[in-house]
Nucleic acid binder design. Sequence first.
DNA 1: ATAAACTCCGTACTCTACTACGGAGTCAAG
DNA 2: CTTGACTCCGTAGTAGAGTACGGAGTTTAT
Lengths: 138, 138
Amino acid sequence: MKPLTIGKVASRAGIGIETIRFYEREGLIAEPPRRESGYRQYPEDAVSRLRFIRHAKELGFSLKEIKELFALRVDPETTCKEIRERAQAKIGDIEDRIQALQRVKRALNGLVASCRGRGPVSECPILDALDQDGTDRR
Amino acid sequence: MKPLTIGKVASRAGIGIETIRFYEREGLIAEPPRRESGYRQYPEDAVSRLRFIRHAKELGFSLKEIKELFALRVDPETTCKEIRERAQAKIGDIEDRIQALQRVKRALNGLVASCRGRGPVSECPILDALDQDGTDRR
DNA sequence: ATAAACTCCGTACTCTACTACGGAGTCAAG
DNA sequence: CTTGACTCCGTAGTAGAGTACGGAGTTTAT
């Protein structure tokens, strides 16, 4: 359980050193303790947090949204009610995204099918995939 | 079925006029025909395409990726096999994303539940949600 | 005990995806 | 036939998310 240097954390989490410092500046991760020399010393679980950030980004969450996800559990002063409400809002959000992804997937499947069927692929099922609910949510 | 001006297209698709011109420059949408005055004239289905772009972006696809999705069906010279392969790769990709989102969702649900259960919410189920496969895919 | 590798910091640069500006021409409703 | 809304274009600016630089100090493996 010895603390990790920034370089170790970076390679384990699969991101760059500069990015970690950047996230620290942006408040996505806590400032870690330092040794006398000023070197950062990370506990193991910093790696999980950074991986989470990486994956969440790949899913299309912005850094701001990721911060909000983290905020759901920090401070023990937040009332349960509030946490529940915010979490549930996020869940709704995520469900929307899943729906939308499933539509894209169906469209691509349609493409594959029509292709297998050997007919001309000229017309485009992808376009219909997400076309509905033209109005804004979020 | 009369053609639409850029402004109409923009409002129906839920994006800005400048953004449409930008997408045109970037090759995400075709240059539409113009009337003598130079005004762009869009067919109805331009709206679908733009909505598709908007939704795909919300899902975390970059413009470049979106272009790749579209490229799956443009040129009729691409072999069926190739289209199928590329489409299937994208499908796999999307399935991964759906899985990941479902993990986040489960984590949030857990959060809500543990909260309702009244125990201390101190420890963080969210972090585990996406934490696995530390290595890169894509 | 010394070289190679690592870390520090602030600043500056890059890339993506818009968004705004502004002057000039065009359209359409009254 | 005017006037207010719309569109044209090129260029410039912005926000978000990193990424690079470079000189100086620190660790660590041999």
